[in-house]
């Protein structure tokens, strides 16, 4: 028997071992990740800041966007959306790969590492990706003069919290997938796209008819966007709403992560 194996230590740090292996895999894609994380914000800042933004401001000035430039109004939403898509990429693909395509999770679970730790490790590594993507985005916002350096830095953790909330839930669903043929279509076109469009991203949620607003209420993107706007400029939603948004996002993280960990454990033990 190898005397170097310290099971209690693995029980404490197992998730970090998994996260570090995930980061190693991600680093193999670093060029593509960097290109996406720099390119995507650039496209938005140019198209929306110069194109659509000018059009909006010509039409109604800044009266519909709390008195600030249109691009600054949607910046917190774009940031949160970046966190969401980044975390999604790094949870959904590795999870389906881990259970189905290459069965890496079964290899990891053949060691003292548990299913719960694998779930947590994948999640933590995805958070790292979001921290990177969102930080890059924030630097570009500074460079394009969309936000001033200062309190606005808070939109970074807020965006990551939004991504974390979405990621914890999507991790659970990814771990439930037995047949992946239609999953990506449904996820991309019927969940992500409507969430992106109807979460008060490009206009305040309240400017939509009331029957469409619930899409925003259940969307982590909307909660993160509202919080981000409150941090980035004088949005004025009040402390009660700030608290509600925080509670909703934190609840999604806790509940989603617990469901995910249980689902990983169950599926691996079959």
């Amino acid at each position: 028997m190898n005397t170097g194996i310290d099971v209690p230590q693995i029980q404490r740090f197992g998730a970090l071992y998994i996260a570090s292996a995930r980061l190693r895999s991600m680093s193999k894609w670093r060029t593509i990740i960097a290109a996406v994380d720099i390119g995507n914000p650039l496209f938005y800042l140019i198209a929306v800041g110069i194109g659509i933004g000018v059009l909006v401001e010509q039409g109604s000035g800044t009266s519909g966007t709390s008195g600030i430039k249109y691009i600054a109004f949607i910046a917190p939403a774009l940031l949160a959306n970046t966190a969401i898509t980044g975390i999604m990429d790094e949870t959904v693909f590795p999870t389906i790969e881990g259970f189905k395509w290459r069965k890496l999770f079964f290899a990891q679970n053949a060691t003292p590492i548990t299913g719960r730790q694998i779930a947590l490790g994948v999640y933590l590594a995805a958070l790292c990706r979001a921290i990177f993507s969102v930080s890059v985005y924030y630097l570009l916002l500074l460079a394009f003069n969309v936000v001033d350096f200062g309190v606005s830095v808070l939109i970074i953790p807020i965006a990551i919290l939004g991504g974390a909330a979405f990621g914890a839930v999507i991790l659970y669903f990814a771990a439930k997938i037995e047949k992946d043929d239609q999953f990506f279509n449904i996820l991309g076109r019927l969940i992500l796209m409507p969430m992106f469009l109807f979460s008060g991203t490009f206009f305040p949620l309240t400017s939509m008819p009331i029957y469409l607003q619930p899409i925003g209420w259940v969307s982590p993107l909307w909660h993160a966007t509202e919080l981000g706007r409150e941090a980035a400029f004088d949005y004025g939603i009040g402390n009660t709403l700030v608290l509600i948004h925080l509670v909703v996002l934190l609840t999604l993280v806790v509940v989603g992560l617990n469901l995910s960990m249980r689902q990983f454990e169950r599926r691996l033990a079959k």
């Binding site: 190898n2 170097g4 194996i5 310290d6 099971v7 230590q9 693995i10 740090f13 197992g14 071992y17 998994i18 570090s20 292996a21 190693r24 290899a107 990891q108 060691t111 003292p112 590492i113």
Partner: peptide, 14 residues
């Protein structure tokens, strides 16, 4: 060698 390395880490080995 990376495959062997990360697997060893799952056992908490130095």
């Amino acid at each position: 060698s990376e495959n062997l390395f990360i697997y060893g880490r799952y056992f908490g080995l130095s």
